[in-house]
Computed example of a mutant assay.
Amino acid sequence: MNENKPFSYHSTVLFVEDVERSKKFYTEVMGEEIELDLGKNVGFKNGLAIWEGEYGRNVIFGDPSGGDYSSKKMLEIYYETEDMAETYEILKSAGVEFVHEVVEQPWRQLTVRFLDPDGHMIEVGERMDVCIGRLAASGETPEMIAESTMMPAEIVNAILANRD
Rank of each mutant, 00 (worst) to 15 (best):
D83S: 10
M121N: 14
G53F: 02
L135S: 11
R21N: 06
G67N: 12
F114D: 03
Y9Q: 07
V112S: 03
R113E: 12
V29R: 03
E154F: 00
M84T: 08
K24A: 13
L48M: 11
G133E: 07
R57V: 13
Q105H: 11
T87L: 03
P152H: 05
W107C: 04
G125P: 04
V13A: 03
D129T: 04
E32D: 10
T111A: 15
T12D: 12
Y79I: 02
Y78G: 05
V96Q: 05
T141H: 07
D164N: 15
N4M: 10
G43E: 14
S70C: 13
N46D: 10
L75Y: 05
S11A: 15
E33R: 14
E35T: 08
D37R: 08
E35M: 15
E101M: 07
I50L: 14
P117M: 12
E154P: 00
D68L: 09
V156Q: 13
G95H: 12
G133Q: 03
S22M: 13
N41F: 04
E32P: 02
P142C: 10
K73G: 13
V112E: 01
A49G: 08
M150F: 06
G56A: 12
Y78C: 07
N2P: 04
N41C: 07
L110S: 15
D37K: 03
M150P: 00
Y69I: 12
Y78S: 07
R108I: 06
I155A: 10
G125T: 02
S138M: 13
K92E: 12
H120Y: 15
E86V: 06
P64E: 05
N46P: 08
L135V: 11
I50G: 08
Q109V: 09
Y69E: 11
P106M: 10
